[in-house]
Protein backbone atom coordinates (compact mmCIF):
# COMPACT_ATOMS: atom_id res chain seq x y z
CA UNK A 1 0.00 0.00 0.00
CA UNK A 2 1.20 3.43 -0.86
CA UNK A 3 2.16 5.57 2.13
CA UNK A 4 0.64 8.68 0.57
CA UNK A 5 -2.27 8.46 -1.79
CA UNK A 6 -4.24 11.24 -3.48
CA UNK A 7 -7.46 10.28 -5.24
CA UNK A 8 -9.32 12.67 -7.52
CA UNK A 9 -8.38 15.78 -5.49
CA UNK A 10 -10.07 19.04 -6.52
CA UNK A 11 -8.97 22.31 -4.90
CA UNK A 12 -10.36 25.75 -5.55
CA UNK A 13 -9.16 29.28 -4.83
CA UNK A 14 -12.54 30.93 -4.57
CA UNK A 15 -14.00 30.13 -7.97
CA UNK A 16 -10.72 29.25 -9.62
CA UNK A 17 -10.43 25.52 -10.16
CA UNK A 18 -6.76 25.03 -9.30
CA UNK A 19 -6.52 21.24 -9.01
CA UNK A 20 -8.74 19.26 -11.34
CA UNK A 21 -8.68 15.74 -10.00
CA UNK A 22 -5.16 14.86 -8.95
CA UNK A 23 -4.32 11.16 -8.57
CA UNK A 24 -0.93 10.48 -7.10
CA UNK A 25 0.79 7.86 -4.95
CA UNK A 26 4.06 7.80 -3.06
CA UNK A 27 5.51 4.52 -1.84
CA UNK A 28 7.52 4.10 1.36
CA UNK A 29 11.16 5.14 0.88
CA UNK A 30 10.52 6.54 -2.55
CA UNK A 31 11.41 9.96 -3.95
CA UNK A 32 8.61 11.14 -6.19
CA UNK A 33 8.80 14.39 -8.07
CA UNK A 34 6.03 16.63 -9.28
CA UNK A 35 7.21 18.81 -12.15
CA UNK A 36 5.44 21.44 -14.16
CA UNK A 37 5.59 25.08 -15.15
CA UNK A 38 4.56 28.13 -13.16
CA UNK A 39 0.95 28.06 -12.03
CA UNK A 40 0.46 24.39 -12.86
CA UNK A 41 -0.68 23.69 -9.27
CA UNK A 42 2.42 22.11 -7.76
CA UNK A 43 2.48 24.22 -4.61
CA UNK A 44 -1.31 23.97 -4.39
CA UNK A 45 -0.99 20.19 -4.35
CA UNK A 46 1.47 20.25 -1.46
CA UNK A 47 -0.59 22.74 0.51
CA UNK A 48 -3.68 20.63 -0.02
CA UNK A 49 -1.88 17.54 1.25
CA UNK A 50 -0.83 19.41 4.38
CA UNK A 51 -4.31 20.74 5.06
CA UNK A 52 -3.35 24.37 4.49
CA UNK A 53 -5.92 24.33 1.68
CA UNK A 54 -9.11 22.32 1.85
CA UNK A 55 -9.97 20.17 -1.16
CA UNK A 56 -13.56 20.41 -2.30
CA UNK A 57 -13.57 16.85 -3.54
CA UNK A 58 -11.43 13.75 -3.38
CA UNK A 59 -9.43 12.04 -0.67
CA UNK A 60 -5.90 12.16 0.68
CA UNK A 61 -4.69 9.15 2.64
CA UNK A 62 -1.56 8.64 4.70
CA UNK A 63 -0.91 4.95 5.18
CA UNK A 64 -4.61 4.29 4.65
CA UNK A 65 -5.70 6.96 7.15
CA UNK A 66 -7.84 9.79 5.84
CA UNK A 67 -6.10 13.22 6.01
CA UNK A 68 -8.58 15.15 3.90
CA UNK A 69 -10.56 16.85 6.66
CA UNK A 70 -7.72 17.31 9.13
CA UNK A 71 -6.33 20.75 10.04
CA UNK A 72 -2.60 21.29 9.37
CA UNK A 73 -1.42 20.68 12.93
CA UNK A 74 -3.04 17.24 12.95
CA UNK A 75 -1.51 16.45 9.56
CA UNK A 76 1.92 17.36 10.94
CA UNK A 77 1.28 15.21 13.99
CA UNK A 78 0.49 12.24 11.72
CA UNK A 79 3.80 12.61 9.93
CA UNK A 80 3.63 14.97 6.98
CA UNK A 81 5.88 18.02 7.10
CA UNK A 82 7.05 20.39 4.45
CA UNK A 83 9.78 22.80 3.53
CA UNK A 84 7.60 25.49 2.02
CA UNK A 85 8.07 27.43 -1.18
CA UNK A 86 10.27 30.45 -0.60
CA UNK A 87 11.66 28.68 2.51
CA UNK A 88 9.73 30.88 5.00
CA UNK A 89 12.17 30.50 7.87
CA UNK A 90 11.39 32.56 10.98
CA UNK A 91 13.76 35.46 10.32
CA UNK A 92 14.19 36.85 13.83
CA UNK A 93 14.58 33.47 15.49
CA UNK A 94 17.90 31.69 15.73
CA UNK A 95 18.75 28.63 13.67
CA UNK A 96 18.28 26.47 16.75
CA UNK A 97 14.89 27.99 17.55
CA UNK A 98 13.79 27.48 13.96
CA UNK A 99 14.71 23.82 14.20
CA UNK A 100 12.91 23.54 17.52
CA UNK A 101 9.80 25.01 15.91
CA UNK A 102 9.94 22.15 13.41
CA UNK A 103 9.51 19.73 16.29
CA UNK A 104 6.62 21.72 17.77
CA UNK A 105 4.20 18.81 17.67
CA UNK A 106 6.60 16.40 19.34
CA UNK A 107 7.09 15.78 23.03
CA UNK A 108 9.96 13.28 23.10
CA UNK A 109 12.87 15.42 24.29
CA UNK A 110 15.52 12.77 23.63
CA UNK A 111 14.18 12.06 20.17
CA UNK A 112 14.21 15.76 19.32
CA UNK A 113 17.80 16.14 20.51
CA UNK A 114 18.84 13.09 18.47
CA UNK A 115 17.10 14.41 15.38
CA UNK A 116 18.74 17.78 15.83
CA UNK A 117 22.14 16.04 15.76
CA UNK A 118 21.01 14.18 12.66
CA UNK A 119 20.09 17.46 10.95
CA UNK A 120 23.46 18.91 11.92
CA UNK A 121 25.05 15.81 10.39
CA UNK A 122 23.26 16.50 7.12
CA UNK A 123 23.85 20.25 7.24
CA UNK A 124 27.11 20.92 9.10
CA UNK A 125 26.78 24.57 8.25
CA UNK A 126 23.68 24.83 10.43
CA UNK A 127 25.72 23.75 13.43
CA UNK A 128 28.24 26.52 12.73
CA UNK A 129 25.44 29.07 12.65
CA UNK A 130 23.35 27.62 15.45
CA UNK A 131 22.83 30.94 17.29
CA UNK A 132 22.65 33.15 14.23
CA UNK A 133 19.38 34.76 13.28
CA UNK A 134 17.75 32.90 10.39
CA UNK A 135 17.07 36.15 8.54
CA UNK A 136 20.79 36.81 8.23
CA UNK A 137 21.55 33.47 6.55
CA UNK A 138 22.22 33.23 2.81
CA UNK A 139 19.58 31.83 0.49
CA UNK A 140 21.19 28.41 0.34
CA UNK A 141 21.57 28.27 4.12
CA UNK A 142 17.95 29.28 4.57
CA UNK A 143 16.93 26.44 2.26
CA UNK A 144 18.99 24.01 4.34
CA UNK A 145 17.37 25.38 7.47
CA UNK A 146 13.88 25.01 6.01
CA UNK A 147 14.62 21.39 5.08
CA UNK A 148 16.18 20.70 8.47
CA UNK A 149 13.17 22.27 10.16
CA UNK A 150 10.83 20.02 8.19
CA UNK A 151 12.94 16.97 9.12
CA UNK A 152 12.68 17.89 12.80
CA UNK A 153 9.02 16.86 12.68
CA UNK A 154 10.27 13.30 12.03
CA UNK A 155 8.01 13.05 8.99
CA UNK A 156 6.89 9.85 7.37
CA UNK A 157 6.52 11.85 4.18
CA UNK A 158 8.65 14.93 3.58
CA UNK A 159 7.26 17.51 1.20
CA UNK A 160 9.86 19.72 -0.48
CA UNK A 161 8.56 22.73 -2.35
CA UNK A 162 10.97 24.20 -4.91
CA UNK A 163 14.21 23.70 -2.97
CA UNK A 164 16.22 25.05 -5.92
CA UNK A 165 14.32 28.32 -6.15
CA UNK A 166 16.57 31.35 -6.44
CA UNK A 167 19.79 29.49 -5.68
CA UNK A 168 23.12 29.55 -7.52
CA UNK A 169 23.78 26.35 -9.51
CA UNK A 170 26.50 25.22 -7.12
CA UNK A 171 24.08 25.48 -4.20
CA UNK A 172 21.37 23.68 -6.16
CA UNK A 173 23.81 20.79 -6.59
CA UNK A 174 24.57 20.85 -2.89
CA UNK A 175 20.88 20.78 -1.94
CA UNK A 176 20.17 17.91 -4.32
CA UNK A 177 23.15 15.95 -3.00
CA UNK A 178 21.46 16.19 0.37
CA UNK A 179 18.18 14.99 -1.13
CA UNK A 180 20.05 12.01 -2.56
CA UNK A 181 21.53 11.37 0.88
CA UNK A 182 18.04 11.51 2.42
CA UNK A 183 16.89 9.07 -0.25
CA UNK A 184 19.69 6.70 0.75
CA UNK A 185 18.48 6.96 4.35
CA UNK A 186 15.06 5.78 3.13
CA UNK A 187 13.24 9.07 3.70
CA UNK A 188 10.02 9.24 1.73
CA UNK A 189 9.98 12.48 -0.25
CA UNK A 190 7.50 14.24 -2.49
CA UNK A 191 9.56 16.80 -4.37
CA UNK A 192 8.03 19.71 -6.25
CA UNK A 193 10.38 21.34 -8.74
CA UNK A 194 10.50 23.64 -11.71
CA UNK A 195 14.00 22.48 -12.49
CA UNK A 196 12.76 19.25 -14.11
CA UNK A 197 16.14 17.89 -15.11
CA UNK A 198 17.69 17.84 -11.70
CA UNK A 199 14.45 16.72 -10.09
CA UNK A 200 14.14 13.73 -12.40
CA UNK A 201 17.78 12.88 -11.78
CA UNK A 202 17.17 12.24 -8.05
CA UNK A 203 13.61 10.86 -8.23
CA UNK A 204 12.40 7.28 -8.64
CA UNK A 205 9.17 8.31 -10.29
CA UNK A 206 7.68 11.53 -11.58
CA UNK A 207 4.39 13.22 -12.38
CA UNK A 208 3.98 16.04 -14.84
CA UNK A 209 1.41 18.63 -13.84
CA UNK A 210 -0.19 21.01 -16.31
CA UNK A 211 -2.89 23.55 -15.37
CA UNK A 212 -4.14 21.48 -12.46
CA UNK A 213 -4.09 18.09 -14.14
CA UNK A 214 -1.57 15.28 -14.26
CA UNK A 215 -0.75 14.78 -17.92
CA UNK A 216 2.09 12.30 -17.66
CA UNK A 217 3.54 9.98 -15.08
CA UNK A 218 6.03 7.22 -14.84
CA UNK A 219 9.55 6.16 -14.11
CA UNK A 220 11.85 9.17 -13.68
CA UNK A 221 14.36 7.89 -16.23
CA UNK A 222 11.65 7.31 -18.82
CA UNK A 223 10.17 10.74 -18.17
CA UNK A 224 13.56 12.36 -18.63
CA UNK A 225 13.75 10.82 -22.09
CA UNK A 226 10.12 11.40 -23.00
CA UNK A 227 10.12 13.71 -26.05
CA UNK A 228 7.15 15.75 -24.77
CA UNK A 229 8.80 16.35 -21.40
CA UNK A 230 12.07 17.18 -23.10
CA UNK A 231 10.38 19.70 -25.32
CA UNK A 232 8.32 21.32 -22.61
CA UNK A 233 10.53 21.22 -19.52
CA UNK A 234 14.04 20.23 -20.47
CA UNK A 235 14.63 22.77 -23.20
CA UNK A 236 14.38 20.33 -26.12
CA UNK A 237 17.47 18.46 -27.24
CA UNK A 238 19.60 21.58 -27.15
CA UNK A 239 21.84 20.20 -24.42
Amino acid sequence: MAILELKNVHTYYGNIHALKGINLTVEEGEVVTLIGSNGAGKTTTLRTIQGLLKPREGSIKLNGEELTKLPPHDVVKRGVSQSPEGRLVFPRMSVKENLEMGAFQRNDKDGIAADMEKVFGLFPRMKERINQRAGTLSGGEQQMLAMGRALMAKPRVLLLDEPSMGLAPILVDLIFDIIRELHRQKTTILLVEQNARIALSVADRGYVLETGEIVLSGNAKDLAHNPEVEAAYLGGKAH
Partner: peptide, 13 residues
Protein backbone atom coordinates in the same frame (compact mmCIF):
# COMPACT_ATOMS: atom_id res chain seq x y z
CA UNK B 1 4.03 36.72 14.20
CA UNK B 2 7.16 36.01 12.18
CA UNK B 3 5.44 33.98 9.48
CA UNK B 4 1.92 32.72 9.91
CA UNK B 5 1.94 30.33 6.95
CA UNK B 6 5.20 28.74 8.02
CA UNK B 7 3.98 28.47 11.60
CA UNK B 8 0.85 26.77 10.36
CA UNK B 9 2.91 24.39 8.27
CA UNK B 10 5.04 23.57 11.35
CA UNK B 11 1.93 22.26 13.05
CA UNK B 12 0.91 25.27 15.12
CA UNK B 13 -2.83 25.55 15.53
Amino acid sequence: REDELAANAMGID
